[in-house]
Simulated scan of single mutants.
Amino acid sequence: MAIKERKEREKQEMRNLIIESATQLFLKQGYDKTSIRSIADDIEYSPATIYLYFKDKDEIFYVIHENAFDILDKHLRQHDGIADPFERLGAIGRTYIKFGLENPDYYDLMFIMRAPMEQIKNEEKWKAGECAFGYLLTTLSECLEQKKIRPAELHVTAIMVWSFVHGLVSLYVRERMCILMMEDDATREVLYSSLDLFMANLKT
């Protein structure tokens, strides 16, 4: 292996190590209590080493955020083959819920954890987040054009759909569904059934 290739591989491995450590610390301690120093201590390197790869904690969080949204987007786009946009919308909703239930830590980091969004604001485009939301917009636009759902403004409808599934997942992730006093499997079925009822109310 050429020296240049080896150095690039080592650089990527170090970035991955920093990201993995930061992810776990953000989830365990919260954003505010995690520092560059604590990340450095966790991976047993000096803070100066981390600054060779990231300018600050915000940038590390942004990379983790992007990675998580990229994973979600890939899951959602598995439904590209569903021709009927209303059926695709339902599949997207179920997949979104499933992603949140199976990846509660990632979901917490993506949508619930309080952390500054300054790095995202500083980027020209929030690529992964816009990609996932754009897929929802495209699907809803097709539903509206084909009169599969009640007529409404596209972005209002998108926020309504997203807010509904986000609310379901958030209640589950933050363990508020215990109020139902059901077994976990039964609780999950309630979430999916709630989505089905919501979808039925969207239809024309």
Score class of each variant (00 low, 15 high):
A200T: 10
E66L: 04
P104V: 08
C143M: 09
E183I: 08
F61D: 14
I159E: 14
C143T: 07
F198Q: 10
L195A: 01
T139Q: 02
N67D: 11
E5W: 00
T138G: 11
A91G: 10
I43R: 03
Y62H: 06
D58Q: 10
D184H: 10
K55I: 06
Q29P: 01
M181T: 14
A83C: 02
E142S: 15
P47D: 05
T34D: 04
K121L: 14
Q29L: 04
T49G: 01
K127D: 12
F111D: 09
R6N: 06
R188L: 04
F86C: 12
F198W: 08
A152I: 15
H65N: 13
L101T: 07
M199N: 03
R114S: 15
A200H: 10
L72N: 04
S194L: 09
E118I: 07
M1R: 05
R188T: 02
C131M: 13
C143V: 07
D58K: 04
G129M: 04
I92C: 11
I120N: 07
G134L: 07
L154C: 03
A91Q: 12
A2K: 13
K121G: 01
T23Y: 08
G100W: 08
S141F: 09
I19C: 03
H65I: 00
L76Q: 05
D70I: 01
A158S: 12
D108P: 01
Y106R: 11
S38T: 06
E118D: 13
I179M: 15
E5R: 06
R176M: 15
